[in-house]
Design a protein around this nucleic acid. Structure first.
Lengths: 231, 231
DNA sequence: AATGTTCAATATGTCCTACATATAGACAAA
DNA sequence: TTTGTCTATATGTAGGACATATTGAACATT
């Protein structure tokens, strides 16, 4: 019983997964929604009709619908039936993104994804940011003087969060919020939190007076300890 | 009965959502998984036990489990029961990311997200890319000479896809693949596909001979038409 | 005309029972 | 040790039943 050999095999072959009818129905429903090119608000057939049309029990249909409902693709109302909704694309993500469950490789990948995002923010920032934004960011940065460590962590989050917010892209902002726990988790694994040569106040002053290229260099310097750990 | 007014109201207020028991159970199960800090492969109680413990019918439990199963958080096997799995974080995403269903604001957000990613790739690229990578990329770029438009679109995808691949971050790569339809959709909405001053072969030559900063500037020039449309 | 009230129809939400089916785990055979 | 056989069992599916909220209409009130 070579355990690791089995693990290898299983990884290479992939498990055989007998699709349940709920899986099929879920797929068919999604295809149906797409095919009919239904718009949000449009009514859907009722459960019993779907069950009959698909030749499965209402239970199976409900399992599939339950999934779509979770993803926010449909909404159901007591007597009216179901309507197509505008799904919140990040909602599903949120449920799964638990550092304790995600495997280490993916965890590292996500950490890197955050670095990529942070480095790419500049171009949006320099299009959208306002003086008021910078003022607010400066306040956050100034809060950091003479504070204990736990406060610093919170402030770190606030600072970078504000940066995302300043892009005026709310999906991006929410994405960042979701990635936070992963970031925190990876940081915790590392020996000690080092900060780059440029701190938050340095970044603020660049935003106020410097060019976009300056900011990109500054951000890289700020994140350099993380980049140095890449391999 | 101003229809659009009602629609607006509903959007601003949000609907009141009476949680179903399946919602509750789903939440409780997720909390349970977290609290017990179960590792992938660990066994879970069987459906009937869960139902009894939670004081709900097996149906409700199954709906909740069906959701977790879809997210890849658990796997069920016929006689053994359920085991905690290592969820594929992007799986859920994939299902929802249909340009036809996502609302326009989010669509624009995602498009911008892609720009951010693309601009941020450089730092990972210059750590990980190999000569062989660049060779392959060059081949893709050289394929573009004297080809019809539909081929160009495919090649465009291949080129940028290869860039993501070169970061050695498979999550990032998969993420890009998922965003492709959105990208294509947004592009299709725009008058005509313009390309920046630097084309793919230009980027390749920078990768081969230029610095990271050169590449960042090159990528910006390449994507400039898109950045110009931002507001 | 706008707001309240009543009321019946009905689609979803929930529970229950029953049975089919795959398979884990034990044991037997090679 | 490997391979075949068997059985208990947890999931998968079906279908019936009923509770419940809520729509939409009809009607009364201000």
């Amino acid at each position: 019983m070579n355990e690791s050999l089995i693990n290898d095999l299983s990884k290479n072959l992939g498990r055989v997964k007998a699709n349940t009818m709920a899986d099929d129905v879920e797929l068919k429903l999604r295809q149906y929604l797409k095919k009919m090119s239904l718009k949000p608000g449009d009514a859907l057939p009722k459960e019993t009709d779907l069950a009959e049309a698909l030749g499965v029990s209402r239970n199976v249909v409900r399992e599939a619908l339950s999934r779509l409902r979770m993803l926010g693709m449909i909404e159901t109302r007591k007597r009216k039936g179901m309507v197509l909704a505008s799904p919140d694309i990040l909602q599903a993500f949120e449920r799964v993104l638990d550092p304790l469950i995600i495997d280490d490789t993916t965890l590292r990948d996500i950490f890197e994804l955050r670095l990529v995002l942070e480095m790419g923010l500049a171009d949006l920032l320099y299009v959208r940011m306002t003086e008021a934004d910078i003022d607010e960011l400066e306040q956050i940065a100034n809060n950091e003087i003479n504070k204990d460590k736990s406060f610093l962590v919170k402030n770190e989050i606030a600072f970078h969060g504000k940066l995302y917010e300043m892009t005026g892209n709310s999906t991006l902002k929410r994405f960042q919020i979701m990635l936070l726990p992963v970031f925190a988790y990876v940081i915790a694994l590392v020996d000690k939190p080092v900060s780059g040569k440029i701190d938050h106040r340095g970044l603020v002053s660049i935003l106020r007076n410097g060019s976009k290229e300056d900011f990109k260099k500054g951000m890289y310097a700020h994140l350099k300890p993380h980049f140095d750990r890449l391999k």
